[in-house]
Design a protein around this nucleic acid. Structure first.
Lengths: 240, 240
DNA sequence: GCCAACACGTGAACC
DNA sequence: TGGTTCACGTGTTGG
């Protein structure tokens, strides 16, 4: 039996120690793993538990490796807890029994998100005429077969001459293509519904940028027009 | 060094084998783990690789344990894949980069589900007057501090004398308490909005039962009233 | 005893 | 390097 590298022996050492096959120090592992890297042919037992490296410094490379392992172990535990806490929140949100298993839960989440997207799409998609309330709606579609992301954006606000130029500027700067545009004006207000395509390489960012850009466009529009309007009822921002 | 049980030694054997410290058969592990349970004091190496148990039967207890381990390993892999595939679907649904880590993804999912619930609640909650379309809407709230589940249910259909008794019967049979009830009638139609509390012990089931009960109530209502109505435009069922 | 689901600790990969 | 994330195989528990 000739060990090939130190890693294997540190594993072996740990294995033996954890299973009580050799005695270990208070913490669990001594700083003697180094000695195992060039092991003497004697058997591993507690009588070999003497080493010279530990007298040189308090923090031998072995101790440091050990501390790293401990860190790693704890970090991993925190990671698991973080994930599980989110899963628990989802259980609450979906009214799932706390003992619903993870896979089933996630399947339900997928289904629910699809339903909700569908519902908001239907509920908010019915509007074609401008409303009294200012609205920015970005309904994210999914990726088309050719890798483009197709989605729908709706903007409802006061009509003004430079709205379309502003809108075009935004779309151009984000490298978004307008596949289709509907606009309806009524009583000084306008509703703009755009079908937009984004190249796959910067699609996600573009969607978020567009949301923010439209939102700020709407705010700009509001602040400049506020004096003219008798009332701004509300502001809706729908992000699907 | 006296091993305490067989499990430890099978672990040890596996450890040694996996790290090439002893030779193993074609599959990976020989059927010799039993011999390790009462080990001879000699060292573990390939020269000890002879055993009598395997000649008795093809399926020794060791082989069966081995097969079970293999099963277990593969089942666990399938489970991981199942979970991860759902996570990937969620990544697609949320337009997340494929390298968004699990915890962050799940945090976004939680946030998104909350947003979507909020939006559908707002979008569908605006209606107070009865619509032309028959509707059952159950908007699930979350658990209150005292463990009760509070949620909102809305029902819109033809008005009829025995609607309220039917409704009360349903709620009573499901042990649901009505905290608040709004009802608006207009042109022979009625909209009923109920705030309902369910005890925690059978809350989830009750919500689903209620959904089904209201749905069938609506269908019953329709079939008996169909002749009187000139048109039933549509039927909406919203479940949040 | 089997099966399914979980938490755990660890090695590997990526910054 | 250290920090962080992932997949993996395993021990364990409940049905």
């Amino acid at each position: 039996m000739q060990p090939e590298n130190c890693s294997e022996n540190s594993q072996l050492y740990r294995f033996l120690a954890e299973n009580g096959m050799i005695n270990v120090g208070a913490y669990g592992f001594p700083a003697a793993m180094q000695t195992l890297c060039n092991p003497s042919p004697t058997s591993y037992n507690s009588s070999d538990y003497h080493f010279e490296s530990s007298v040189i410094t308090d923090m031998t490379p072995q101790d440091r490796a050990l501390a790293a392992l401990k860190n790693h172990k704890e970090a991993e535990k925190r990671r698991r807890e973080r994930i599980n806490s989110h899963l628990d929140k989802l259980r609450g949100l979906l009214l799932c029994n706390s003992k619903t298993d993870k896979a089933t839960l996630l399947a339900k989440v997928v289904q629910r998100v699809r339903e909700l997207k569908q519902q908001t799409s239907e509920l908010s998609g019915l509007e074609t005429f401008p409303s009294e309330t200012d609205e920015v709606t970005v309904l994210s579609g999914e990726y088309s077969s050719d890798g483009q992301l197709i989605f729908k954006a709706s903007l409802c606000c006061e009509d003004r001459l430079d709205l379309m130029p502003d809108l075009n500027e935004i779309l151009k700067s984000l490298h978004l293509k307008t596949l289709k545009a509907e606009m309806v004006t009524l009583g000084g207000r306008i509703r703009n519904v755009l079908i937009i395509a984004a190249d796959k390489d910067h699609s996600v960012e573009s969607v978020h940028f567009l949301q923010n850009a439209l939102k700020s466009l709407l705010e700009r529009s509001n602040s400049s027009e506020k004096s003219k309007r008798r009332r701004i009822l509300d502001r809706k921002l729908i992000i699907q």
